[in-house]
Design a protein around this nucleic acid. Structure first.
Lengths: 124, 124
DNA sequence: CGCACCTTGACAATGTTTTGGTAACGTTGC
DNA sequence: GCAACGTTACCAAAACATTGTCAAGGTGCG
């Protein structure tokens, strides 16, 4: 009785069973297993899964990116290397639009969104 | 004369001209432009591009991930949200293989590589 | 036992990112 | 002015991420 099965968890979190397995495999959620190997979802896991949904939707990124963020925490070498590279940024060009790249991350999506239906620009 | 043109830069860094434009657009490298709009690559940029290559190859990730790392630096809200979610990790399950997820990031590749042609396993 | 659930693994459809090519047009240098 | 380069903008192929589905087999329970 210690926890819901995958299908029940799917029902209450909005993820599909397939995705729940994917998320576990991605290392984003650790689960207890029943003696026979069934995944068991406790209240904490369920909460975490719901929060995860909001997080991805709200901040506009995906599981892969979150996985990388996790990697950055757990691999000091990786973190160091990435930071070192990013720190070396203060570029030659004095005249750089500092928020230029920001557009990029958004446009990736908007490009398609815009293509889909050309309306709905007011939502922003 | 202040800096190489894109094709010259490509030649000395190993990136294709196409990729050099992509990298700039991704906000990973800021460039000076000539009066007529030509991208100009100085020694620093060239060095940065070479370093970038090594970094990605050595730590096994891509431009998108680096872009996200950059996003994490520049968007406090994002960083806070991600950290908050990850901090809530100390899971129910006491018995978690701590390096389990690591396999994932690697297997992603191997899966397809193996599927491609079942030969050529010796190349590794 | 039988039925509905679970497991892993594979194959595939879809969506997105990465990368290349090409077209249309401006720049540089001889 | 012409050849060889640069620019942006677009289309397309390849790679990867996301998601579904199905097969083969184990588990739980009436």
């Amino acid at each position: 009785m210690e926890g819901l099965t995958i299908q029940e968890a799917a029902a209450t979190t909005g993820w599909s069973p397939r995705m729940l397995r994917y998320i576990e495999r991605a290392g984003l959620l650790a689960l207890v297993r029943s003696p026979s190997g069934y995944r068991l979802y406790g209240p904490e896991q369920l909460q975490r899964l719901r929060t995860l949904r909001e997080l991805l939707a709200r901040m506009n990124f995906g599981l892969a990116e979150l996985g990388f963020a996790m990697r950055l925490r757990r691999e000091p070498e990786l973190r160091a290397a990435v930071n070192e590279w990013l720190d070396a940024a203060p570029e030659r060009p004095e005249h750089v639009a500092p928020d230029d790249w920001l557009r990029w991350e958004q446009e990736k999506h908007q490009a398609l969104i815009a293509a889909a239906h050309t309306t709905e620009m007011e939502m922003a």
